[in-house]
Amino acid sequence: MGFSVTKQGGVTVIDVEGQLIVGNRQELKSKVLEELDGGDRKFVIDFSRTGYIDSSGLGVLVSLSKKIREQGGELRLSSLNEDLRTLFELTKLDTLFRIADSREDALEGF
C-alpha cells in the first residue's frame, strides 16, 4: 500500500495502491503538496490499483483539488472501479471532479 509519483508529459500522476483512508491520507496530501510547491500544476490521481477510499480519503481529495485550483492548476481523477464510483456518486463528488475512465483519457488534452 502506498503512493507512487511519476511525471508524464508535464502532468504529475499519482498512483494509489491499496487504500486511501484515514490512516494514510496525510501521506498523499504531503506528496501532492510537495509537487505543487515545486511548481507542478497538472495532476492526475490514478485509482486503478485502489480497493477502497473512505470519507477521510474523499475529504483529502476535495482539499487537494481546492489547493491546486487556488494555484491555477487542476486535479483530475482516473480509473475508479464500480465501488469507488458509487461513493463519488453518492456524495455528489462526481460533480466536483473531472473523472476519466482511464489514465490515458485523463492525460488527453491536459
Binding site: S55, V62, L96
Partner: peptide, 11 residues
C-alpha cells in the same frame, strides 16, 4: 460540497 469533512455519517 467543497468541505473536506462531514461525509462519514452520510455514507
Amino acid at each position: 460540497l467543497c468541505r473536506a469533512g462531514g461525509r462519514g455519517l452520510f455514507l
